[in-house]
Amino acid sequence: MTSRSLSQFTARFAPGLVCTVATSAAAQFAATVEIPQLDVSEYHRPYVAVWIEGPDRSVINVGVWYGVDMKNDEGESWLKDLRQWWRKSGRDLNLPIDGLSGPTRPVGTHEVRIPSSISDKLVEGEYAMFVEAAREVGGREVVRVPFTISRNSKVNVSVKGERELGTVTLRQID
């Protein structure tokens, strides 16, 4: 799916919707990303990108949290610090994109919406959800959450980051 069609699709949904009711029998998913409390003298909320890679390594963007409201689009100048995401997808996008772009989030655990436009694409196979965080005057971390879509079991995975990210989860909810 292109980012444009993703944008058109997700724009129809109300913001904050965690999951959507699909007409098809495809599975529904809920993800969470924890931004940890850090004991640092200068703290800025991290920029975060969330995406899923399929068996062919193609990128399905889920979300990117950055300084979306900064004047002169200054927030976009730091997107390159999400190095892996920037290379795999970010530099090909024309941000902001409705339903994908969002503001930075505070410390805490955040629900990440996986719209059915994405979950419908998750046919049987091996996947990984990636969460990359980069913080101004701080560090960077990528958490990879591998998961398998199969008829026999439901996805319920969790990986803990080491520094810039806390626990990242992905759960099949239907």
Binding site: D73, G75, E76, S77, K80
Partner: peptide, 8 residues
Amino acid sequence: TVLSGTDQ
């Protein structure tokens, strides 16, 4: 060498 944004 790798930048994002405008008028960098």
